[in-house]
């Protein structure tokens, strides 16, 4: 196992670790406003067209969204277990929990892909094959525009998270996540939980709006 030195601007490794975590918290604050602005536009339009949005939302594939909630929540659990294993220095557990997290993330993307195909089959993709039902005119398309901006953006964040997990697996292999210093993993964990939380907010906007 290699012994890590802090970078030149830090006095200690723990200062370096705390700073990295603060950096991720600050980043999450900006991300909150990024997704927040999008969800804000959604609520403005939903407020203007409540019936039309409810009608358009009936086409959203409920089972896909719900399964994905389950997958992501579970993946946050496995991520925390990975961090716990890192803190205890159980390297094999750490690796396995990280692999489980990545697996759940990949499953999410697959379900999402299936869902997008179903949306295509339902003629719900704006600018490709969207057909406005009379009950949802004129704003039904806005709902699906929101959907097709929000879900790919979220999926993109998730893919970045998967990349970070792979990077963590590589660092586990290299042996530089030790009980003395595993802050990078905690930072990735924060990010992963944020991506999870975004989905929790998108879920009711997309899947429950037409089903009250």
């Amino acid at each position: 196992m290699r012994s890590l030195q802090p970078e030149i601007q830090y006095a200690t490794l723990s200062q370096q670790g705390e700073t990295a975590q603060l950096g991720m918290w600050v980043f999450i604050a900006t991300e909150t406003l990024f997704f927040g602005a999008l969800i804000f536009t959604y609520f403005i339009y939903r407020d203007a067209y409540p019936k039309e949005f409810a009608e358009a939302g009936k086409d959203a594939v409920l089972w896909c969204g719900s399964v994905n909630v389950g997958l992501l929540l579970t993946s946050s659990l496995t991520m925390v277990l990975a961090i716990d294993a890192a803190a205890d220095g159980r390297r094999r557990h750490l690796k396995n929990w990280l692999l489980a997290t990545a697996g759940l993330g990949i499953a999410f993307v697959c379900v999402k892909g299936v869902e997008w195909c179903l949306d295509l089959a339902h003629h719900d993709v704006p600018s490709i094959n969207f057909i406005m039902k009379p009950a949802e005119a004129p704003a039904g398309e806005l709902f699906w525009v929101f959907y097709f901006i929000a879900t790919p953006l979220h999926a993109l964040h998730l893919l970045i998270g998967l990349g970070l997990i792979l990077y963590m697996l590589w660092r586990v292999r290299r042996g530089d996540l030790t009980p003395a210093y595993y802050a990078p993993l905690e930072v990735v964990g924060l990010y992963w939980s944020f991506v999870d939380t975004v989905w929790i907010f998108l879920y009711p906007c997309i899947y429950l709006v037409g089903r009250s």
Binding site: T30, L33, F34, G36, A37, L38, S127, L142
Partner: peptide, 23 residues
């Protein structure tokens, strides 16, 4: 940190509207 992401989303929506031809 708190204002720029809102601009990012705003110009993204403008670009999407032009690019996808939605309203």
């Amino acid at each position: 940190l708190l204002a720029t992401p809102v601009l990012a989303m705003t110009v993204l929506l403008v670009a999407m509207e032009r690019f996808m031809g939605v309203g």
